[in-house]
Amino acid sequence: MVSSLTEEEQIALQHKMRQCMQKVAQHRDKEAFGVLFDHFAPLLRSFSLAREPGASLMADELTQVVLLKVWEKAHTYNSDKASVSTWIYTLARNSRIDLLRRSGRYTTEIDPEYLWQETEDESTDPFLDVQQKRAEKSIADAFEHLSIDQRQVLTKVYLEGKTHQESAEELALPLGTIKSRIRLALKKLQILVRNQPC
């Protein structure tokens, strides 16, 4: 984990990314796209390599697929609902699954494009922006205070894309331990809500 930025620097960076997204969405601004590229391309390659170590070509492909989506879909990005990083993370997650599926790693007819649509929903709620920032701050404040074990399991699941079963095998732990570590970590992060009426 790299956390070299202070909180103010982090906020300034997010603000900059948001402005770049706006410039791409409104003016097709290649310079702004370049800024997004320089920030996200190394993270995207790293995200792909975490799942498939050594697969350098696949890492390039994922980076290309995601950044071209950023270019094409910039107009659908809703800054009230998600930070630029969250939006790009969800594109990366979905594209990684799709690439694995196309390469024959999952033999299923299910098209991941139809799943995970929530961040593209454009429901308007004036509190979304506030709630989203609060959750972001809560994660940033609490994450480094999680135990090493808890961080390790979350990293396995999120970054390496491992199932609970695979994580249990790799860490030589019972499945129940993996699940309870995740459950406790999420409790400590205090980001989940209970029972909102629909």
């Binding site: 930070s83 990083s85 969250t86 993370y89 959750a135 994660i139 940033a140 979350l154 999420l186």
Partner: peptide
């Protein structure tokens, strides 16, 4: 949404 924010943080 929150759990995706956690993913984005990582």
């Amino acid at each position: 949404q929150r759990l995706s924010q956690l993913g984005a943080y990582i």
